[in-house]
Design a protein around this nucleic acid. Structure first.
Length: 270
DNA sequence: CGCCAGGACGCCC
DNA sequence: GGGCGTCATGGC
């Protein structure tokens, strides 16, 4: 990645990024495509820091109204620009299916998201579809003036007071998660640094957090790239292409491989 | 209309 | 420990 400052914008060159593939692949739910004269433009947030970012053409981006300090201190990390995805894809391409998945959507990057927002978002995601997940999270943030609620804010709610979310049976899970995080009973920073099995167990102590949601929080919210969320789509990939198990060589970055595979299988028409 | 969704829980055996 | 019905809601 290289960057140059141009007025109030930051121009970025990064071949291993595609905004559509990265911001609309089911890892984050608060990015919205807006009309623009560029290839595509998205507006969204990291915690409560807003950003509008455009893809001018393949591999070329504009981070609008961003200072160099903001870019280097925040967005550079969020987009995981320090990681060499070309090297990762070369490694993955040893496997035939992974090779196809990387070729299909080579511009996916694993965003380094906020653990609290991820926890809440993926509790909402269970047995749900992506458009409706986005809608519920929209209503949650609209209720907080456009920002994502803090643990303290959400801990004051009850399943009844969250009825406006229309999140169904998940509302009671949101309340349990908020209560535990707000009280300190669940320490997300400590979990992020804990051995992976210990971290899994601590997350699953929260009501409504099972194996799948725990893996998503570890992967997307704590950047534990060895975490491997298995949903209905990945189950299909494993059954169809990996009857003898997922390749050992990709295990340390299984979560990133999972992102390529998830996007690949979901968009494969036949 | 019926089937499904980036699942987890509670109960049963 | 594994299998199955249930849980709200709405996208398609």
């Amino acid at each position: 990645m290289d960057m140059t400052v141009k007025g109030s914008d930051i121009l970025v060159h990064e071949p291993d990024l595609d905004l559509d593939e990265t911001l609309d692949c089911g890892q984050a739910f608060r990015w919205r495509k807006i009309a623009s004269d560029y290839d595509c433009t998205y507006t969204g947030s990291f915690v409560n820091d807003k950003l509008t970012v455009s893809q001018v053409k393949k591999g070329e981006f504009i981070f609008h109204n961003t200072t160099e300090a903001d870019f280097l201190g925040k967005w550079c990390d969020y987009f995981d620009f320090a990681t060499d995805y070309s090297e990762l894809k070369r490694c993955f391409s040893e496997d035939e299916t992974l090779s196809k998945a990387c070729a299909f959507a080579g511009g996916i990057r694993l965003l380094r998201q906020d653990s609290w927002e991820c926890l809440i978002s993926f509790i909402i995601s269970q047995n749900n579809n992506i458009p409706r997940i986005k809608g519920i999270i929209d209503r949650l943030c609209d209720n907080c003036g456009g920002d994502f609620p803090t643990p303290e804010q959400l801990a004051q709610e009850t399943p009844d007071s969250l009825a406006y979310l229309r999140s169904g049976f998940r509302a009671k899970y949101l309340c349990d998660a908020a209560s535990r995080v707000n009280s300190g009973e669940t320490d997300l920073s400590a979990i992020a640094a804990a051995p992976i099995d210990e971290a899994r167990a601590a997350l699953k102590a929260i009501k409504g957090v099972g194996p799948k949601v725990a893996e998503c929080v570890l992967l997307f919210g704590m950047h534990r790239v060895e975490a491997f969320p298995v949903d209905v789509w990945i189950k299909r990939v494993l059954a169809e292409y990996y009857p003898d198990g997922f390749p050992e060589f990709a295990r340390d970055n299984a979560g990133i491989a999972q992102q390529y595979l998830f996007h690949y299988i979901r968009n494969l028409k036949e």
